[in-house]
């Protein structure tokens, strides 16, 4: 099983519901003055990238769950690892020493440093991790009103994400870096 994310750039209206839902993973940061100083953002794992020139273009950026993850390669203790059952990139906080090389190594800038625990954070957060383990959708996918998000097993040809990948024109971000991300962007 390889779990992957899909984001449809043709449909996303930047409503922010996924981003704000994601903040449910970090209730301790809800009313912090600076919940995410590294991103100057909410305590959430999804951030917004907007092109202000030409046709307005948007990307919603969260962990790409790369098959060839630079953060896993860089991690000295093996705290950052790829979960064999699901293919998701996870963090074992017992082994993490907080060296931040995973944050530096990620070419997508998908990681941030939690201001209270000083651990690196990324998608999926603690709540979504449990939801996924129970076979439910992560909070970002569950809320999207524009049906611009999907999540599922790309090794299962019947899954809705596999069908969308087959049916639509999809691309991935920063493919030239060889990270083999599992976050598919429908164009």
């Amino acid at each position: 099983m390889r779990l992957a994310y899909l984001w449809d750039s043709r449909k996303c209206i930047a409503c922010g519901a996924c981003i704000i839902n994601c903040a449910a993973n970090y209730p301790e940061l809800r009313f912090e003055k600076e919940p995410n100083p590294m991103w100057k953002w909410l305590g959430a794992n999804i951030r917004r990238v907007i092109r202000e020139k030409g046709k307005p273009e948007l990307r919603l950026l969260s962990c790409q769950h790369c098959e060839n993850a630079p953060c896993v390669t860089a991690c000295p203790t093996g705290a950052s690892y790829i979960e064999p059952e699901t293919g998701l990139v996870k963090l074992n906080k017992d082994k993490c020493i907080g060296c931040k090389s995973c944050i530096v190594a990620c070419p997508y800038g998908a990681r941030w440093l939690h201001p209270k625990t000083m651990y690196p954070e990324k998608c999926p957060g603690p709540v979504c991790e449990q939801l996924i383990a129970r076979g439910e959708e992560p909070l970002c996918v569950a809320v999207c009103p524009a049906e611009a998000r999907d999540f599922g097993d790309i090794d299962d040809p019947q899954s809705s994400i596999s069908q969308k990948i087959k049916r639509h024109r999809v691309s991935r971000m920063l493919e030239h870096l060889g990270t083999e991300p599992k976050y598919f962007v429908v164009r």
Binding site: A74, I97, T117
Partner: peptide, 26 residues
């Protein structure tokens, strides 16, 4: 002291990752 958990540095050797340059530094 740059680390969040310096007292857990033994993981650098216990969980040694050959692909990681930092593991080799340790």
């Amino acid at each position: 002291l740059d680390l969040t958990k310096p007292l857990n540095s033994y993981w650098l050797l216990l969980g040694f990752q050959p692909a990681s340059r930092i593991a080799w530094m340790a």
